[in-house]
Design a protein around this nucleic acid. Sequence first.
DNA 1: CTGTTAGCGCCTTCAG
DNA 2: CTGAAGGCGCTAACAG
Lengths: 329, 329
Amino acid sequence: MASIRDVAQKAGVAISTVSKVLNQYPNVSEETKAKVNEAIRELNFTPNTIASALSSKQAGRVALLLNLNTQTQAIDEIDMQYISGAINKAQEMKLDVITVFFSMIKDRDVYGIVNYLKAQSIEGIIIYGMSREDKILHKLIEEQHFRIVVVDAPFVNPNTSSVQIDHEKAQYDVAKKTILENKGNKILYIAGKKNGFVTKDRLDGMKRLAEEEKLSLLVRQGDFSEKKARQLAFQYARSRDIVVCASDLMAIGAMRALQEMDIFRPVCGFDGITLMGYAGKQMNTVRQDFYRISAEAMEEMARLLEGGEGREILLDYSIIRMQYLDIIC
Amino acid sequence: MASIRDVAQKAGVAISTVSKVLNQYPNVSEETKAKVNEAIRELNFTPNTIASALSSKQAGRVALLLNLNTQTQAIDEIDMQYISGAINKAQEMKLDVITVFFSMIKDRDVYGIVNYLKAQSIEGIIIYGMSREDKILHKLIEEQHFRIVVVDAPFVNPNTSSVQIDHEKAQYDVAKKTILENKGNKILYIAGKKNGFVTKDRLDGMKRLAEEEKLSLLVRQGDFSEKKARQLAFQYARSRDIVVCASDLMAIGAMRALQEMDIFRPVCGFDGITLMGYAGKQMNTVRQDFYRISAEAMEEMARLLEGGEGREILLDYSIIRMQYLDIIC
DNA sequence: CTGTTAGCGCCTTCAG
DNA sequence: CTGAAGGCGCTAACAG
């Protein structure tokens, strides 16, 4: 591997000069710039990111912090979209990415986590799927040792931005569409996890709709679990007109139950994962573009790393109807 | 962040001494070791991996090279298992991991890729899902600039190991089980992609069984595509007794077609992905534990990085029957 | 067994 | 506009 020294030598300039053209500094004549670039090309030189990070103390390294649900592979799709969206955008922005799972840091305290990350010269963290219970992460955010972007959780401070869709409105929209299409006013709403941030937002959307439309609303916690939703559907769906679920996975569980009971009730979901296509019936759902959400999160991270202030970002979504033939290829 | 210097100062020893206890070198008295460790704890010191990597030229950084199929989110599950298996094991072995997608390097030549990776101090690469067409990767392997572990492809040289299950035998086993359970001797075999390495292995297994059992074997390329398999099933399944597919996704496509045609034929798949549980019918399949395969690959990588010689590793698998209630939670 | 001394490859003032 | 010099945090001979 050619080093910056080789380049300097070949171009007949000082190392520092090469460094300057590498980092787009001003005060370098076009002439020498050309010479240097020529040498770089000839030697097929790529600067060593490790050395550059060490030296500048500014690595541009960001960690993806994922709450992997090892139980439910069915929604690995979401995490995969998160990961690829972030990584691709990071490459575009010339940021380094490492992937970290909650499980890897779960028995450390804030200080331990900060150390673990600082030791790797991490400057930014994107957190996916945090819940109200993750106290340590809340602290991490508060203490502002890092630039942080939180996906789907309402945290904002000078070093922290939040990125998400408007869950309240999305839940309202998809439920409304489903209800208008089918009429019926007794709703079974299968909500998410008690301590999830989006759970409340979505429930609020549902409640608003219920009030507006004078619906009878029965709310049960489905914990984002397919099995739980299935049980709840068995238990309550018969006496209800429509089943609104706070996630696709739960919608699938509910739909299965209905099929087994051999009764029909419209069901709608939330997320827009491919699996919905396998549900057996068409269903309305909110399509979140996780890839894009994550890419936006990374872009926001880049902004923060440049010194930008934390802020809240709301992304758009769409209401779609999923069916089998659309998803296969 | 405390640095090694602070520790040395606090412990009243030289920096190099601290380094030695950090890296478990011999020739350090228990006494000073204790002093140093004490200082480390007090200062809450974690060595800077970046600096250590730069200095030792031995970063222990490995890249995960994944061929993400953006079309088929349904099998993101596999990639996710690969990623988490590798990352978790890497943390255990104190290796650094970065994730790279084929798409990120697809327009570079070998030299460009080597540079890209070397610039990041990557020493090892684990390659997932390579096909015969990825000529550049073949070259990368041949040139041995890195330690490489290839999953599901038969490459071995002093710096390269291969890790996979015995696809030939697995295909043989699952097909045999399905055939014995159902009897029938006209088989439709929906094979994988023309240039996939496992495609041939699996096909060989099927052929061996066909010979042994005197089966009539009709082979068609399904390209690992659910849609294609669906079409093939529409076209050929009626005149066949049993449908053997080289992947779960294709098995699902075939099963769908059969349901739409309203005829029954036993179908078996390969992989053991969760999605199989949503197929509507129970099916036999080969369960590959992708998480474990990837973890083993990372372990093998650690061995290579320690100077071990490349070799072939065959992992085991099991034949299972998947059904809905087993997979939900 | 411990400390001294060079770097690793690059960035960054600061003179010239 | 360019180059010399020091240093980032750590490792690795080499003396002592």
